[in-house]
């Protein structure tokens, strides 16, 4: 089934950016909003709860905006930089695999907040693929928000049952003698994958290599890009 997201999103309704606010964060009426007339009831109730929590002093008026801003810069590129460094520096890779949380923090990134982080290395013999069948656990502090498909009921249902078919849909045809390990995330741990370094990249710089590391390859559903793919 689909998420029916098209029916709910892109309503044109923009509370945060378009609404003028009082000093305490409460929005003023805004004439422009009269044109925007649809918002799902769960969305509206979330905004209502936000207002009430601010009014009651449970949270501060700018807490949410500050949190949004703090998360705004997290992109898959953070993980890609770590992968590229691991590809060129074996000692760094060994440390990253052995002490991920500390190594990621030392590299200047935020490892995870509510959970440990585990780094898994794909090789020519083993392909890791990450899912969270129960919810949507994902190393979002490092890689940014998970893609919609990762959170979909279809991926969560199928990943542990037919991983090779999913990889095939994502463009990765795996040899039968490669062992697939589907990692079903626990709430206390987050996983990210170092994909196999593509052939033909000998002597490349970390920056060049990082361009080959896609978000999906760090989830393990696909391989890193090949030099041909980026030069095409």
């Amino acid at each position: 089934m689909s998420n029916h997201e098209g029916e709910f999103y892109d309503t044109g309704w923009r509370p945060k950016n378009d609404v003028h606010r009082d000093e305490d964060g409460r929005p003023h009426d805004h004439p422009g909003l009269q044109e925007d007339t649809s918002l799902g009831v769960r969305a509206a109730r979330a905004l209502a709860m936000h207002e009430l929590l601010v009014e009651k002093g449970v949270i501060g008026p700018s807490d949410v905006d500050e949190d949004i801003a703090a998360r705004g810069n997290v992109v898959p590129g953070n993980g890609a930089a770590l992968v590229a460094k691991a590809w060129v520096a074996p000692e760094f890779k060994a440390t990253l695999l052995a002490h991920p949380k500390q190594t990621i923090a030392e590299a200047g990134f935020v490892p995870e907040h509510n959970a440990d982080i585990i780094v898994l290395e794909n090789t020519s013999d083993v392909q890791y693929m990450v899912v969270c069948t129960l919810c949507s656990c994902y190393p979002g502090r490092l890689l940014g928000p998970p893609p919609d498909w990762y959170k979909s009921l279809e991926y969560r249902s199928r990943a542990v049952r037919e991983p090779r078919k999913i990889m095939s849909e994502f463009g990765l045809e795996l040899a039968e003698d490669v062992e697939v390990r589907v990692v079903d995330s626990n709430s206390e741990l987050r996983f990210f994958v170092i994909p196999l370094r593509p052939p033909g990249t000998e002597g490349w710089s970390e920056d060049e290599l990082a361009n080959l590391v896609t978000r999906d390859s760090m989830i393990g559903v696909s391989a890193a890009l090949t030099p041909d793919a980026v030069n095409a």
Partner: peptide, 18 residues
């Protein structure tokens, strides 16, 4: 698996951060 990404609405960012 539908691989199309939707653009986040502001209420979604607000709800996540809240």
């Amino acid at each position: 698996i539908d691989r199309e990404e939707h653009e986040w609405a502001d209420w979604e960012r607000q709800t996540r951060s809240l």
